[in-house]
């Protein structure tokens, strides 16, 4: 006798049923409180069109463009220096956090937790913290990007180190090589391509974050954007948004090309 064909649908267990209903209830209850009502959408649409109208044409006055250009350069500097610091600091941090490789043994979880902390705090919150500690301006932005990059690269560097080929490491350990020698000789060359890849992603991410840091006073082009909105200079705001769009797109293009060459 052949066994019967299994049913198309497995019966929902009572627990799954309760969880599903509860999740739907939470979703619907939330929608009534925070989702836009049709009324709001209808009223908001003409205002949006009106705003768009006041934003065009973008302000292309040369004096204004020069001011923007200076801010753009600053934004890039924040992104580049912040990402560079972050990547450099992530190398030892990633090593400390890597399971099975870390020189601090089981305490690698502490390093991992700190990296998670750096990652879970949003960049704008870091920016607020650093503006409060080192004052308004680009330095706060650079520190923010550094923390953000550690949260990102620290994790991926640790994974790259954990994933490095085990056989060559064992071969070196067997002849009595020190932990440092094994790390430099066998782990580093194997983890490097993946680490460069993560670093390029980090740079791309840094450029994207650095454009908004100015909203909370941490330097860069975001500061001009906030001023433009605060003073109702919507045509200026339009120019800035377009410039940001071009920068982020350009950055993604460049890092994509670099990554492709790396493969």
């Amino acid at each position: 006798m052949t066994r019967p064909v299994p049913p198309r649908l497995n019966r929902l267990s009572p627990l799954s049923f309760v969880v599903t209903v509860a999740a739907l209830a939470v979703l619907i209850a939330s929608m009534t409180q925070v989702a836009p009502t049709p009324d709001q959408l209808v009223q908001g649409a003409p205002r949006f069109v009106n705003l768009m109208d006041r934003m065009t044409p973008p302000n292309l006055d040369p004096a204004f463009l020069w001011r923007i250009a200076a801010r753009i350069v600053e934004t890039f500097q924040i992104a580049l220096v912040g990402a560079a610091f972050g990547v450099l600091l992530s190398i030892p941090i990633g090593w400390l956090a890597a399971r099975g490789v870390s020189p601090i043994g089981p305490f690698h979880v502490v390093a991992k937790a700190l990296v998670s902390l750096a990652r879970t705090i949003p960049d704008l919150v870091w920016a607020l913290i650093f503006v409060a500690t080192v004052g308004l301006g680009a330095v706060a932005g650079t520190l923010t990007i550094t923390m953000d990059t550690i949260g990102f690269c620290g994790r991926f560097f640790a994974e790259a180190i954990e994933d490095a080929d085990k056989e060559p490491q064992q071969a070196l350990e067997a002849i009595g090589a020190s932990k440092l020698s094994v790390a430099l000789g066998a782990i580093w060359p194997d983890a490097l391509p993946s680490m460069i890849n993560s670093s390029l992603f980090a740079l791309e991410k840094a450029v994207r974050s650095s454009v908004v840091l100015g909203l909370v006073g941490a330097g860069g082009i975001g500061q001009e954007l906030k001023v433009a909105f605060d003073l109702f200079q919507y045509q200026n705001a339009c120019t800035i948004i377009l410039v940001i769009f071009i920068i982020v797109l350009g950055m993604e293009f460049v890092t994509d090309r670099l990554r492709a060459r790396l493969q």
Binding site: A171, L184, W188, P189
Partner: peptide, 28 residues
Amino acid sequence: HCLVRRRTVLCNVLHGLLGDPGSWRGFS
């Protein structure tokens, strides 16, 4: 599969000397 793939042959042979104390410079 016990060689370091992305390093040169010479580098891998040098690794044989890494067991001596203070020999970390032999990694490359």
